[in-house]
Write a protein that binds this DNA or RNA. Structure first.
Lengths: 186, 186
DNA sequence: CTTGAAATAATGAATGA
DNA sequence: TCATTCATTATTTCAAG
C-alpha cells in the first residue's frame, strides 16, 4: 500500500502560511520536545546526536518558522477540580455572524476547544467544568443566553483518551531510520 | 452573583486521584509555564517573586502531585501538512465493548482526541489530516473497517479557535490579587 | 556543524527568618 | 518549617575554525 506523505515540502496553495520541511534530526528533536519540552539543549543534543549550538539553532528555527507555536505544559485538570468534560454541538440561527458568537464563546473561561465545522452542526465546543451545578449553570444559563444560537446538543464526557499526546505519538511514528514524511499504512 | 470555586481543596469523592491545593504563587508559576514552559527557573523566579530554589521545589511538587503531566510543545500542524481537522461522531453497535474499539482507534496516527460520551453518540473523535484523499481514506476506508462501529457522522473542520491555550487563559483568569479559586462571574 | 572559552543558570548545603 | 544565600556543578552562548 502506498504510504502517505505528511511532512512534504510544498506551498499551502495560496492560503495560510508556507509549509516547512523537516529532516530526520528535526523530527527527532520535535519528538523529544513533545516528550519533555523542559529538558536542556545539552540533553537534547545527546539524544539526537548533535552539538548543543546546533540544537539551539534548530530550536530558534522552529520558533522563527512557526512550527513551534509555544512551549506549554499539560495540566491534569481533574487534580484542580475541573475533571468533567462537556461537548456541546451548536447550531446557529440562519444568517448569524459566526465572528460575534465565537467572540462570546471565547469569553467563557470553561471553553477548552472550539471548532467551526460543516455538517450537522455549525460549531462544536468542548468545555471543562467541575460538577453538575457547574454544568447546569453553563449549559442551561450561560450558553443559551448567547445571541445567535438556535439550539445546542450536549454530550457529557465519560473519559478522554489521548488528549495531549498527539504530537508525541505523531513524531514517534517516525522512528530514527524511517523515510521522512511517510505515515506507515495501517 | 456567587463566584464558583474551581481550585478548592477536596478529595475527589473516592474516584480518581485527590485534588491539589494551589496558592497564589503556584497559580502564577503555572500561568508562566503555560505561556512558556522552556524559560529558566531564574526567569520564573523573577516573575513570581521567589528565589530560584523555591521555584525548583514547586516545579518538583507539581510533577510529584501530578498537577503537571508533562512539559509539551504546541505544534502548528498546518506547517507540517496536517492542517485539516475532521470531527467524527461515532455510534457503536449495541453491547459493543468500548475498550476494543478505543484500542483500534488509538492505532490511527491521525487521531488527535478521543472522548467517550453519553448522549446522541458514543464517541467523538478528532482527526488531523492533510487533504481530501487523506480524509476519504480515513473516513471511507479505515474507520468503517473497524469492528463494532454502527455508524459515523463526519464534520469537516473549518477552523479551530483556542486549541492549545486553555491553560494559559484559565490561569490568566486568576490575576495576581484575585481570590484563589474563583472564576469571575460572566 | 563542531570546538572551547566566557557568561549564565541549576543544584544542594548551610543558614537565618 | 520554609525561603534565601552562596559555592559548586551544569548549561547556554559566542567566537573561531
Amino acid at each position: 500500500m502506498k504510504k502517505r506523505s505528511l511532512f512534504s515540502a510544498r506551498i499551502a496553495s495560496g492560503f495560510g502560511e508556507p509549509e516547512v520541511n523537516l529532516d530526520h534530526k528535526d523530527v527527532a528533536l520535535l519528538r523529544e520536545l513533545a516528550r519533555d519540552s523542559r529538558q536542556s539543549q545539552r540533553a537534547l543534543s545527546r539524544k539526537v546526536g548533535m552539538s548543543p549550538p546546533a540544537v539551539a539553532e534548530r530550536l530558534a528555527r522552529f520558533e522563527r518558522t512557526g512550527v513551534v507555536k509555544q512551549y506549554s505544559v499539560a495540566i491534569d485538570w481533574s487534580r484542580l477540580g475541573l475533571g468533567v468534560v462537556a461537548v456541546v454541538n451548536i447550531t446557529l440561527k440562519p444568517d448569524q455572524d459566526r465572528g460575534a458568537i465565537i467572540h462570546c464563546l471565547r469569553q467563557l473561561p470553561e471553553l477548552e476547544q472550539l471548532t467551526v465545522v460543516t455538517g450537522r452542526y455549525d460549531l462544536t465546543a468542548r468545555f471543562r467544568i467541575s460538577d453538575q451545578p457547574h454544568l447546569r449553570d453553563l449549559i442551561l444559563d450561560r450558553v443559551p443566553a448567547l445571541p445567535g444560537i438556535l439550539r445546542t446538543e450536549t454530550l457529557l464526557g465519560l473519559g478522554t483518551v489521548d488528549t495531549d499526546d498527539f504530537a508525541s505519538r505523531m513524531f514517534e511514528t517516525y522512528p530514527e531510520g524511517a523515510e521522512l514524511g511517510a505515515v506507515p499504512a495501517i
